[in-house]
């Protein structure tokens, strides 16, 4: 458990105090947000885990009622690493793809040229950090959670060896029965500055039931993307009411939304019996 979670729990509980007292909700009918012009969004990834580079180029949609996020066709997308230059092909509108066994511990550069503007970003793909163990146990919260008597809830624990003498940045993705947990609160990231041992155990606050198939994907990312995810979480979870939200910090030059992520991953799965 990362100490940051204490902070989240504390904020959540403290800000809920007023609501213990009293509160009510009401729809505001005449509420309108300012209309702003649609902006370009580049979601670029490349990975040794999927052996692919995928770049999705879209535009922003209306906040209250996004009928669509328009796909952007006709961009020229190139990926550069070591001495290789690779042109991505547009498989479907706005979706640019290249397949290759991308090397780890390598710096990648992406160029997107569109509408006579150029956007560039760099991302370092760190070496994969293997998961060493995945286990489960009955949660002590079972007694609070059960919907009928005797029902048990399980928590899982992952273990890995944190490489020493360097700062590592990780993201953990959890899949239950082939469905990825994908809400803003499921975006779990950590750096290793608080880790004092090399073997790290982590028991995320997710409950499973018997026969659930649980898959952990342990992703190694670079610092810029760690910052992107940190700011992305804030942009998604902040309600404006207690903080001042801002756009995530992109690694792209040229004033564009989105980011370029090069990552490596390891997975382990387990079935709860």
């Amino acid at each position: 458990m990362k100490p940051f979670n204490i902070y989240k729990i504390t904020i959540l509980l403290l800000t809920s105090i007023p609501f213990l007292l009293t509160n009510c909700e009401e729809v505001i009918d005449d509420f309108e947000l300012k209309k702003t012009k649609s902006e370009l969004v580049i979601d670029a990834q490349c990975s040794s885990f999927t052996d692919s580079a995928i770049v999705k180029i879209t535009r922003t949609g209306d906040y209250m009622n996004p009928i669509e996020y328009p796909a952007v066709s006709g961009a020229i997308v190139t990926l550069l690493f070591n001495d290789t230059t690779m042109l991505l092909t547009e498989k479907s509108p706005g979706l640019y793809i290249a397949t290759y066994s991308f090397p780890e511990n390598t710096m990648y550069t992406i160029h997107v040229q569109y509408d006579s503007k150029e956007y560039t970003a760099q991302s370092y793909m760190p070496g994969k950090v293997p998961l060493t163990k995945l286990s489960y146990r009955v949660s002590e919260y079972s007694k609070y959670l059960q919907t009928y008597p005797g029902e048990l809830f399980y928590v899982t624990k992952m273990e890995f060896l944190d490489p020493q003498n360097q700062t590592n940045y990780y993201r953990i993705k959890i899949t239950k029965n082939d469905t990825l947990f994908k809400s803003a609160n499921d975006l779990m990231i950590t750096d290793d500055i608080y880790f004092t041992a090399d073997t790290i155990q982590y028991e995320p606050f997710y409950f499973f039931k018997k026969n659930d198939k649980v898959l952990f994907e342990f992703t190694s990312i670079d610092k810029a993307n760690y910052l992107y995810y940190t700011t992305l979480i804030q942009a998604m979870t902040s309600t404006s009411n207690f903080s001042v939200p801002d756009n995530p910090t992109s690694n792209f030059s040229g004033n564009v939304l989105g980011r370029f992520l090069a990552y490596s991953s390891d997975t382990l799965s387990i079935i709860i019996k």
Binding site: L33, G61, A184, P245
Partner: peptide
């Protein structure tokens, strides 16, 4: 107060645009 003026997709996430 800061409210979003649009939103967009990154990976599986829907992100507010400020």
């Amino acid at each position: 107060i800061t409210f979003p003026s649009g939103k967009y997709k990154i990976e599986e996430f829907t992100v507010n645009h400020y």
